[in-house]
Amino acid sequence: MKRLLVVLGAVCLVVLLLGAMHDLAPASVELHAAVATNLTASGVEHPVTAVLLNFRGYDTLLEIAVLLLALIVILAIGMDATISAEATVDVRPLVNPVLQTLAKLVVPLMILVAVYLLWAGSFRPGGAFQAGAVLAAAAVLLHLAELLPSWQSPGVKLRLGLAGGFLIFLAVGAVSLMQGALLEYPLEQAGALILLIESGLTVSLGLILAGLFLLLSRDDGETS
């Protein structure tokens, strides 16, 4: 009964939407024109980066908060007190030496790619998120190759790294608010401020995304 209702509802939704989408008048507001006009004042040359970090930078600020929050929730859910770190050691098969060698070779390259993506973001597709994702992938690769242990509970340095990018962003927001509007960059410093925010975010995003994986794999041994 429930199955039938849900499937019926989903089909109805699709039919209605496809019908309604078919003959749609052109949109009355054309934001891509507004973005193009204001691009020179944004401090970056790539329109998507300009929207992400300048025109709608506030969205991005809150979105980093969401990501950091997810990590904190995973920490807060916690593990069973009975599972000690020692109990999880030595249950895995022997490490593949080929994988380890490959990981050692590839990871420096990945870091290089991340730096390139960060730098490229201002004038072509790229930016902090892409760079952070590559960094996180490097960490995951290292973990899978047994070169990087999973996290138990992050120490103070790690917490600083995790929240640092967000705090830099927040600080820029607070300073700009005191001088005018939230995240309003002075014209000549816009490019530098965006680069500062993006550099901080790259490190923190890489750590957070890696953390989401490394924290989830922390109690690996006892369930498998």
């Binding site: 709608r56 929050l69 997810a70 998120f129 989830l216």
Partner: peptide
């Protein structure tokens, strides 16, 4: 239109966060 593209980038990050939370 770069605006929805940027929105989707934001949306993806939010979805990643929600997925990680659900998996945890």
């Amino acid at each position: 239109d770069p605006v929805p593209q940027a929105m989707v980038l934001t949306g993806i990050v939010v979805a990643v966060a929600a997925t990680a939370l659900a998996l945890a």
